[in-house]
Amino acid sequence: MAVDPELKIELGKQGIFVTTIQELYNWGRKSSVWPMQFGLACCAIEMIATTMARYDLARFGAEVFRPSPRQADLMIVSGTVTKKMAPQVVRLYNQMAEPRYVIAMGACAISGGPFKQGYNVLKGIDRYIPVDVHIPGCPPRPEALLQAFMTLQKKIDEQSLTGENRPRYLNVDAPGEFPVPEQGEHDLVPASNPNVWTVPVVIR
Rank of each mutant, 00 (worst) to 15 (best):
residue 96 M to W: 01
residue 57 L to R: 07
residue 197 W to F: 03
residue 111 S to F: 06
residue 11 L to D: 01
residue 127 R to N: 04
residue 89 V to C: 06
residue 145 L to N: 03
residue 120 N to T: 15
residue 46 E to M: 07
residue 27 W to E: 14
residue 121 V to L: 06
residue 101 Y to E: 03
residue 58 A to W: 09
residue 128 Y to G: 02
residue 71 Q to Y: 12
residue 72 A to N: 09
residue 120 N to C: 08
residue 148 A to P: 01
residue 188 L to K: 05
residue 194 P to F: 06
residue 66 R to D: 10
residue 84 K to I: 04
residue 80 T to W: 03
residue 190 P to D: 10
residue 12 G to R: 04
residue 5 P to T: 05
residue 78 S to D: 13
residue 143 E to Q: 14
residue 30 K to Y: 06
residue 145 L to E: 02
residue 194 P to W: 03
residue 65 F to Q: 13
residue 41 A to T: 02
residue 144 A to V: 05
residue 138 C to Y: 02
residue 99 P to S: 07
residue 93 Y to F: 13
residue 92 L to H: 10
residue 92 L to V: 10
residue 63 E to N: 15
residue 199 V to D: 07
residue 27 W to Q: 14
residue 113 G to K: 00
residue 95 Q to N: 14
residue 156 I to R: 07
residue 10 E to S: 11
residue 129 I to M: 03
residue 102 V to L: 14
residue 78 S to E: 08
residue 196 V to S: 09
residue 143 E to V: 12
residue 40 L to Y: 06
residue 192 S to V: 09
residue 163 G to H: 13
residue 86 A to F: 01
residue 77 V to M: 04
residue 113 G to C: 02
residue 57 L to C: 09
residue 93 Y to E: 05
residue 125 I to W: 01
residue 74 L to S: 11
residue 82 T to I: 07
residue 75 M to Y: 07
residue 6 E to P: 00
residue 168 R to I: 11
residue 14 Q to W: 08
residue 153 Q to P: 02
residue 72 A to I: 09
residue 67 P to Q: 02
residue 3 V to Q: 03
residue 92 L to Q: 10
residue 104 A to F: 00
residue 129 I to W: 00
residue 163 G to T: 11
residue 111 S to V: 07
residue 140 P to Q: 02
residue 180 V to Q: 09
residue 98 E to L: 10
residue 164 E to K: 15
residue 135 I to Y: 06
residue 3 V to S: 05
residue 5 P to K: 07
residue 27 W to I: 10
residue 146 L to T: 08
residue 108 C to L: 01
residue 13 K to G: 11
residue 71 Q to I: 11
residue 87 P to G: 04
residue 121 V to S: 06
residue 118 G to M: 15
residue 153 Q to A: 08
residue 94 N to M: 06
residue 174 A to M: 15
residue 60 F to G: 12
residue 9 I to P: 00
residue 124 G to Y: 00
residue 116 K to T: 08
residue 77 V to H: 05
residue 41 A to Q: 00
residue 70 R to K: 13
residue 166 R to N: 11
residue 45 I to M: 15
residue 163 G to S: 11
residue 145 L to W: 06
residue 63 E to I: 14
residue 47 M to T: 14
residue 134 H to W: 09
residue 126 D to Y: 04
residue 80 T to L: 04
residue 82 T to F: 13
residue 193 N to W: 03
residue 198 T to R: 14
residue 34 W to H: 12
residue 152 L to V: 09
residue 160 S to G: 09
residue 42 C to A: 08
residue 150 M to V: 15
residue 92 L to I: 09
residue 144 A to L: 05
residue 25 Y to Q: 13
residue 119 Y to F: 13
residue 146 L to Y: 00
residue 60 F to Y: 15
residue 37 Q to E: 15
residue 121 V to C: 05
residue 69 P to G: 11
residue 126 D to C: 03
residue 47 M to F: 07
residue 17 F to G: 13
residue 82 T to P: 08
residue 47 M to E: 10
residue 152 L to P: 05
residue 144 A to F: 07
residue 153 Q to K: 12
